[in-house]
Design a protein around this nucleic acid. Structure first.
Length: 261
DNA sequence: ATGGTTGCATGGCAA
């Protein structure tokens, strides 16, 4: 099974790029974040025509929003509200064989890494705390966790560890917090299993760079984690960096794995 | 130190 996670940054604006991704990868399951669309305007029929008959969508107007597309049927699992908000940041399904697939869009957290003065950073930290509890509670289950976690946990997940230590997405409180989520839930970081540090690995490059590829100031914000006991089912994977260079790209590149499920 | 770009929705916020 080829599984992809992608922060698409508007599913309606980037439907053509999603089609290109499908045609190039022949993915079986696609998890999207930041669809920025209510369910009623989600391109359900277009995606069915592309082979994704089965869709789980949790959208909202203008912001956030997550979806899971699949060629094969799945069962819905209850989606969770974190940090007391119904803001479309989690959706989950059960795939064949009873494997749970959880798709997350963790809050970005604003610009100032101080919860006392930045409510958005406080929200991110609360989300992370509740994610830790959730992660621990489900330890041992057959589950996959993907999404835009908006944290680059390792020094080699950013272009400059030193220069980003006080930049939201790579501050110690965030990286320690995400590493704790990984640890207490007994997860395997699939992309780092395949491409161990210290090799640099990024999935996001800012729109604000005049030449994203040349400056290559990336961060690894998008992740695929497998329950540790499933790690031997990991066959292959990587970051589809090419997609960042497509016409009218998302600022995130898709991340993929091949699993023997 | 600052500003740089994009999407939604059509002003300004979020990223």
């Amino acid at each position: 099974m080829k599984l992809i996670t992608w922060n698409i940054n508007s599913v309606r604006l980037r439907l053509a790029q999603l089609q290109k991704l499908i045609e190039q990868t022949q993915a079986d399951v696609i998890c999207l974040q930041e669809i920025k669309a209510e369910n009623k305007v989600f391109p359900t029929d277009e995606l069915k025509a592309l082979g994704f008959e089965h869709q789980a969508v949790r959208g909202m107007k203008a912001y956030n929003g997550v979806a899971i597309l699949s060629r094969q049927p799945f069962k819905m699992i209850e989606s969770i509200n974190f940090a007391g908000r119904d803001d479309a940041r989690h959706i989950a399904v059960e795939l064949k064989g009873g494997v749970e697939l959880h798709n997350f869009y963790v809050p970005a957290g604003g610009d100032i890494p101080d919860p006392a003065v930045n409510e958005k950073f406080a929200h991110k930290l609360q989300f992370l705390n509740e994610l830790t509890t959730w992660s621990q509670a489900g330890k041992g289950r057959s589950r996959i966790m993907v999404g835009d976690l908006n944290i680059a946990p390792l020094p080699d997940d950013v272009w400059s560890h030193k220069q980003l230590l006080d930049v939201v997405s790579h501050t110690p409180i965030e990286t320690d917090g995400l590493n704790k989520v990984l640890e207490v839930g007994a997860w395997c970081d699939a992309l780092r299993q395949l491409t161990p540090a210290p090799e640099k690995l990024y999935s996001w490059w800012s729109y604000r760079s005049p030449d994203w590829e040349k400056s290559d100031r990336g961060r690894r914000l998008d992740h695929i984690w497998l329950a540790e006991h499933m790690s031997r089912q990991l066959q292959d994977g990587g970051v589809l960096k090419d997609a960042r260079g497509w016409q009218q790209p998302s600022d995130h590149a898709p991340v993929w794995v091949d699993l023997s499920l």
